[in-house]
Amino acid sequence: MSDSTHERIEQIRKGRYIETASLVYNLIEVVVSLTAGFATGSSALISWGVDSIVESNSAAFMIWRLRGEEKGISRCNVLKRKKVTLSVLSAAFAIAALFILYEAMSKLIRGETASMSWWGVGILLVSLVVNPLLGWGKYHYGKKTGSPTLKYDAIDTMICEYQTVVVLIGLAFVQWQGWWWADPVAALLIVPYVAWEAFNAGREAWAVDPSNEQLE
């Protein structure tokens, strides 16, 4: 094995470690945000937690793909894994967008008010710090390994950062201004980004050709 090949495998391994850290943290987000969201009736927290489920799936499939590259599987098989990963993610994002839309619209129609959850606020504040670090790691090793998929996942992580800010603002308006509608509206603001991710992932999955020699 040449030095350059060994170096690339090492960088891929480090990228996989970053994705593993992302998976673990996203699972923590899911548990805390969904528990707090259902306990307080917060559409924004529930929607954020559902998106974290999709992000967890993204990290898990990225680990699967990168592990294959570490083992030296053929380019054709790597691209097959990429196609499967993107297809599953596209479907998961689409389902998440529909669920969030239904949850938020139901709360708006019924006029339900969310109560405060310090656990929910806590995990959101922690995510404001953790997500940029994970995003930087994914982009860094995506650049090092020439992997557009890792860099694309870094963008997804930063979109999650945007969503975190939106949910925090919505909860703040509910708590300190009494604007009950701010919570479901914050959830609705997440929908376009989740739907866009579904579209992009599906488009990329369609474009992947496992018979192509060019590894992406």
Rank of each mutant, 00 (worst) to 15 (best):
V24L: 09
A182R: 04
G202W: 00
A187L: 00
I12G: 00
Q175Y: 13
A172W: 13
I190L: 15
M105V: 14
L189K: 02
N77R: 09
V126G: 07
R13Y: 14
A97Y: 02
A186M: 07
N57F: 14
K71W: 01
W119S: 12
E55L: 13
W136Q: 10
T5M: 10
A21E: 10
V174G: 02
P132E: 01
L125H: 01
V84T: 14
N57P: 04
Y139R: 13
G202I: 01
D209A: 05
T20Q: 13
I63C: 06
I190G: 00
W64D: 15
P148A: 14
I159K: 11
A60P: 05
R81Q: 11
L27A: 10
G37K: 10
T40N: 03
V30L: 08
I9D: 01
L108C: 03
E213Y: 07
R110L: 10
L125M: 11
W48M: 10
P148T: 11
V30Q: 05
W176S: 00
G122V: 12
R8L: 13
A92D: 08
G120N: 08
V185W: 00
P210I: 04
K144Q: 14
A195C: 04
G135V: 03
Y162D: 07
K151M: 15
W176C: 06
P192Y: 01
F99N: 03
V54L: 03
T164L: 08
N131V: 10
S43H: 01
S52A: 15
Y102K: 03
L168P: 05
V194A: 11
A60N: 07
F38L: 14
T164S: 08
G202C: 03
S52N: 08
I123V: 15
L101E: 07
S22Y: 00
R65P: 10
T164I: 15
R16E: 11
G178Y: 01
G137P: 04
K14I: 06
I123S: 11
I12H: 04
V88F: 05
Y139N: 15
S74I: 03
R16A: 14
Y139F: 11
M116Q: 13
G120Y: 08
D51P: 05
A94P: 01
R81S: 09
C160Y: 13
R81I: 04
G111K: 07
P210D: 06
F38S: 14
V50F: 12
L45H: 05
I109H: 09
L168E: 08
I123Y: 12
L188N: 03
A114E: 08
Y141N: 06
L215V: 09
S127C: 12
L150W: 03
S115C: 07
Q11D: 15
M116F: 15
Q175G: 01
V84K: 15
L98C: 00
H6I: 12
F99R: 02
T20I: 12
Y17V: 11
W176I: 10
Y162K: 12
N26S: 14
K71H: 07
K144I: 01
G202R: 00
A154T: 03
I123A: 09
A195N: 01
A187P: 01
L124G: 07
A195H: 00
V32H: 05
E7T: 09
M116P: 02
S115G: 15
A60S: 08
W206P: 06
V126Q: 09
A59W: 02
I159T: 11
E161L: 14
M116V: 15
V30H: 05
G68F: 06
G170S: 11
A44T: 03
G120A: 04
A36R: 03
A201S: 13
K14L: 13
